[in-house]
Every structure is written in C-alpha cells, then in structure tokens.
Design a protein around this nucleic acid. Sequence first.
DNA 1: GCTGAAATTCAGCCTCA
DNA 2: TGAGGCTGAATTTCAGC
Lengths: 156, 156
Amino acid sequence: MLDVLQRPVDRLDPLDRQIIGCLTRDARATYAVIGDEVGLSAPAVKRRVDRLVADGVIRGFTALVDPEVLGWTTEAYVEVFWEGTPSPLELRRSLGEVPEVVGAWSVTGSADALVHILAADIPHLEEAIERLRQQPNVHQTRSEVVLSRLIDRARP
Amino acid sequence: MLDVLQRPVDRLDPLDRQIIGCLTRDARATYAVIGDEVGLSAPAVKRRVDRLVADGVIRGFTALVDPEVLGWTTEAYVEVFWEGTPSPLELRRSLGEVPEVVGAWSVTGSADALVHILAADIPHLEEAIERLRQQPNVHQTRSEVVLSRLIDRARP
DNA sequence: GCTGAAATTCAGCCTCA
DNA sequence: TGAGGCTGAATTTCAGC
C-alpha cells in the first residue's frame, strides 16, 4: 500500500516539468530546441522524454485539430440528473452507450454528471440528447449548447 | 467576405484526413512513417502537413500528460454569469486572466460561459474561482467540482 | 516524387558526483 | 549507479528540380 502514498509527482524534477512544458506547447519541437530552453544537451533531453513516456507521465503526443474543419460544428455540455444514487460504473456504462458523448464527469452540485457531446449539427445534437435521455435511470437533462470556443489551453 | 462562406472543410481530401488521423494518434511520427501509412512520399506528407498548419486546420501539436502526475488532481466546471452583454472578445480576455482556466466556451442557457478549471487541490481551486469572480463584469458563478472522470474519448 | 545537403535522432562511450 | 555531455553513423527534414 505504500506506493499508493508515494505520489508519482515525486519523480518529476523541475527539469522534467520544463521539458513537459515545452512539449505541451509544441510536441514536434526537436530535442535540441528543448535542450536550449532548459539547459541540457539534445541527447539528455531525449533520455528524459523517453523515460517520461515509458513511465506513463507523458501518455502520448497529439495534433490539435480545428473541430469545425472536421465537420463537428456543434458542441454541448449537458448536465445529467440521475434517478437514485448513481455509481460511477453505472454512469459510465449508461453514458458510454451514446457515441456522441466524448467526455463525462461525475460532479458535485445538483446534477449528478456533466457530459460533453460533439455532433455534426443541431438536429444531430438533439437526437443524441434524446438517446441520452432514454438511457435507464437518466431522469432529466439540462443542456448548454456551445456558441463559441473562447479558450482551449493545452494542459500544463 | 466570400472566403467566410467557403468552409475550410472543403479543402480537406481523404489523404488530408488520413494524415490528420496519424498525427492525432502520434504527433511525433516522422513524415516517412505517415507516408507509408497513407501511400505518399515523405516530402509530399510534409508539404500537406505544412499546409494544414498554415491553414489553421491543425492548430498545433501537444503532449498528453497524466494530470495526476503533475499534481493537478482537482477539476471543476464553472458556469459564469456576466453583467450586461458579453462579447466573445471580452469574455476571452477576462477569463484568460486566470491561469487555472484551461478551457472556456460561451453557451446558451442562463449562464453566459462555461469554464473548465484545473487546480492542485480544493484550496487552490477555491482561490482560482475567487480570482475568476473578481474579474470585471463577472457577476456570479456556479461551480461543479469533478468527482471522477467517467469518459474521456479522444477526438475523432 | 526524387534528389542531395543540412539537420536531427539516437546508441555507445566517457566523465563526474 | 545514475545522469549529463560528446561523438558519429543512421535517419529525417526540407528546398530545389
């Protein structure tokens, strides 16, 4: 049980954090460029990045794509109110049935879960929310349709 | 004004979509590897990627970091109620002042914006929300603290 | 798409604490 | 032992053509 208490964060020194910062800003930066910024040689940076990936600190590298270009123009956050006391497992199974759900979190407050939905357009969104409502134990929903994306910072 | 009507999506052919798919899976993949997968030479892939970035289809490349490792264990979605009629520009400037805000969207419904906050712990979260409340024109907030992450599907 | 020069990656080796 | 710097070969990038 001791390793539960030893937070993985302990394995990250300031240099690791700087390197992670560089890579979140630009995942395709060369090791030499990162090295210049953090004060290490390119090979030293590579060794640390390899270690961070192997340890699961860095889960991967991805491209940030403008969702509009892919045709996913409609986005909504939906609060879900549950009948009875939901277990995270039930919630996950129920919400996961709707493919348009790209994110879901159980939350404090009057709602039980917050669900992020991506759809092609408003009729598609409406239909997806309808399917969400028909999931067992989903009692009520309250939707907020995204008008515009204001901030979308990469994780630090 | 005509180029406003011409949706960027029109400029994406199946090859572009395949390349975007590769880069979403691994932003550090070499052009040669991508080329093997989509049936192009490395220079041809590079030219397309450069064009996709220049056109804003690809907004950047980032590393996916395990938030728990960084110690950002506390997450909340905050509805922001605005005094008067907010412009997206004002909203962005106001909300962007708080570094803990990692995402923000203007939304329909009673709230004006939905804000995603990451913090180290509950006191840090409380302090960040307090700073959010003190931004000019922010009238009221309603927070939902995330208890657990149920679904986090990668964007298509 | 091909080519070739420049840049980058990356494994092996050495050094230091 | 572990972490960094250096070196040089293999690979990748990238600007002509």
